[in-house]
């Protein structure tokens, strides 16, 4: 059996209100890759994520995750999404434990009654991100970095094959950033695939295997060192980015 790529987009095209958000995106990522998705605000990073999660109607093309179509990907909880902090209602009356347990819902019966195994996985995930002692806190009582780690723990509890992280390092202290990068690299070792969307270039180069430059379509993708050329970056950011001149 030939193993399918973890993420396989063929000619994916998405439009909102007669306006092309993504045009002809073809992209294949093998399992066990960390891939940065870099582009300006409005360049289509979140549309790309939505296409991978199967949330948007495609005008053209198809999406396969580990060779499977949308329904099966969702039924098996293969993809996990770590949201931006601004998109979350932090006043919601939930504890850290409750949110991480939500990662297990896809694996439970329809009444969502947690088994011993579910509790075990939630505990392990919370210990991994070093939030176990805070599990009874209301979610709004966490710091910026702890909030990110909570959603990372939910993705771990979900046992997803593909992790999508939206601006994971925004408002995060250096110590948390290091912990998160270590955790993501450990996920990569397990053969999981991680996509990180960001407009912060500096943080990407150190640990991303691949980079995708997005501007309504894919401008370039491949190994980080090959993609991050002045010409590519200038096209991705439409000249709004100052690139340090290289000394030849």
């Amino acid at each position: 059996m030939i193993s399918s790529p973890a993420i396989d987009l063929q000619d994916v095209t998405v439009a909102y209100h007669h306006h092309l958000a993504l045009h002809g995106v073809t992209l294949q990522l093998p399992a066990g890759t960390i891939c940065g998705v870099v582009g300006m605000n409005g360049a289509g990073k979140s549309t790309l994520f939505k296409a991978i999660m199967g949330f948007v109607k495609l005008i053209r093309g198809q999406v396969r995750i580990h060779g499977l179509p949308r329904q099966q990907v969702q039924r098996q909880s293969l993809v996990a999404y770590v949201p931006q902090s601004e998109d979350v209602d932090w006043q919601f009356p939930l504890r850290i434990w409750d949110v991480v347990m939500m990662g297990r819902y896809g694996k439970m019966n329809w009444l969502r009654q947690p088994t011993a195994r579910d509790r075990q996985r939630v505990r392990e995930s919370l210990e991994q991100v070093e939030l176990w002692p805070l599990r009874h806190r209301q979610i709004g009582e966490l710091s910026g970095g702890q909030k990110k780690r909570m959603f990372l723990a939910r993705a771990f509890a979900q046992e997803a094959q593909v992790l999508l992280l939206d601006e994971p390092f925004a408002g995060v202290d250096v110590k948390t950033e290091k912990l998160m990068i270590d955790l993501l690299m450990a996920e990569r070792e397990k053969g999981h695939t991680i996509l990180i969307s960001t407009h912060d270039l500096a943080s990407m180069t150190t640990f991303c295997d691949q980079v995708v430059l997005v501007n309504r379509g894919i401008l370039a993708y491949g190994r980080t060192s090959e993609v991050f050329t002045p010409e590519n970056l200038s096209r991705a950011f439409e000249g709004s980015l100052r690139i340090p001149r290289r000394c030849d």
Partner: peptide, 22 residues
């Protein structure tokens, strides 16, 4: 009473709810 967990998740984080097939 039967579906409160799904409803809470739907209110809190519909994106996650969809990704896990709800």
């Amino acid at each position: 009473a039967l579906l409160h967990r799904d409803l809470i998740l739907f209110c809190f984080d519909p994106t996650h709810a969809r990704t896990i097939g709800l």
